[in-house]
């Protein structure tokens, strides 16, 4: 008997990986993660509680890693879809640089690590919300809704809307109406944002068999729904001012951004069927990113200013 029973290396398990640290970083979907970090940061800083700055940093890091972990689980499950879409074909799993099993293990380990870190070092409500968000994105959205219904990103959008609630919970240990309004802003923003993308990338989704709204209900219906969501989003954006949580300055900025969102959505609604360049849809997609960043930045600035001046706005 020797210590080495196996002497041949033909087994696929002996495949030598060429995946770099950068490939594993790409599994975390860094661009999505940056949005998660920003909105969680706003939730955490706007909350009426004093959390130690280093614990706040740890909370943000744990939320970012948790979001990245759900991205890795998404790339593990969606490798077949990603391989046939131009936007995603070069991702680490479909391109073969990282095996599906490696992406799955990476996602599971980071999920457990991020939730446990947030729970042990910050608080368990925030950790439970993070765990639910990872589960919602990886299982409810990725494995179930995405391939089943054109409402996939409407319901699945909840996963992207949770980070400010988690940030708020990390600071206060509670969930309040203010954090739910921040949730609603992202929740209502998600469908027009992704449907604008789906309009000018509909062939990609068609090829991959993903039932996005333009492929299932048609472009005209999608344009109407985008406009409907824009009409719902604009008033929710100014709710923090209406309810006395933010100043009139925030209210004016939010109203202007909401009006801009409605204007860009109107241009999409009026886009002729013959317009295959889809410039209005591309413009709305770009503006939607500006909208989310600007409205959260305004809310953050307003909260910080309120705290510095030491007075409420109501």
């Amino acid at each position: 008997m020797t210590l080495v029973d196996k002497t041949r290396m033909e087994d696929a398990a002996f495949r030598m990986s060429e995946a770099t640290a950068g490939d594993y970083f790409a599994l975390l979907k860094p661009r999505v993660m940056s949005l998660v970090v920003f909105t969680a940061f706003v939730g955490l800083l706007a909350a009426p509680a004093d959390i130690n700055p280093l614990l706040a940093l740890i909370a943000i890091l744990a939320i970012a890693v948790g979001a990245g972990a759900s991205g890795s689980l998404n790339m593990w499950y969606d490798a077949d879809i990603d391989a046939v879409m131009s936007r995603t074909a070069s991702r680490p799993v479909p391109s073969g640089r990282v095996s599906p099993g490696e992406a799955l293990a990476f996602g599971l380990v980071l999920s457990a690590l991020s939730v446990m870190t947030l729970g042990v070092l910050v608080n368990w409500l925030a950790a439970a919300l993070l765990a639910f968000t990872i589960f919602f994105y990886a299982v409810i959205y990725t494995m179930w809704l995405k391939r089943w219904t054109p409402q996939n990103i409407v319901i699945g959008g909840a996963a992207g809307a949770f980070p400010p609630v988690i940030g708020w919970a990390a600071a206060t240990g509670t969930v309040s109406l203010e954090s739910i309004i921040l949730f609603l802003i992202i929740f209502l923003w998600t469908p027009p944002h992704f449907w604008a993308l789906a309009l000018f990338k509909s062939q990609d989704y068609e090829r991959a068999g993903v039932p996005m709204m333009p492929n299932v209900a048609g472009e005209a219906s999608t344009r109407r729904q985008i406009f409907g969501y824009a009409l719902a989003l604009a008033p929710v954006g100014i709710l923090p001012w209406c309810l006395g949580y933010a100043s009139a300055g925030y209210g004016i900025i939010a109203a202007a951004l909401g009006a801009g969102f409605i204007w860009y959505s109107w241009k999409v609604l009026k886009m002729p069927d013959s317009d295959r360049s889809m410039r209005p849809a591309k413009a709305l997609f770009g503006f939607s990113l500006v909208y989310l960043f600007a409205i959260f930045a305004a809310y953050l600035a307003d909260s910080v200013a309120e705290r510095i001046l030491g007075m409420g706005w109501a």
Binding site: T2, V4, D5, T7, R8, M9, F14, M16, S17, E18, A19, T20, A21, G22, Y24
Partner: peptide, 23 residues
């Protein structure tokens, strides 16, 4: 392990070594 069978080792390529180092 059979006495006559020589163990087979994997020799990493340069890119595999770089990737492993980066990881």
């Amino acid at each position: 392990m059979m006495a006559a069978e020589k163990p087979e080792f994997v020799t990493l390529t340069e890119s595999q070594k770089r990737a492993r180092r980066s990881r």
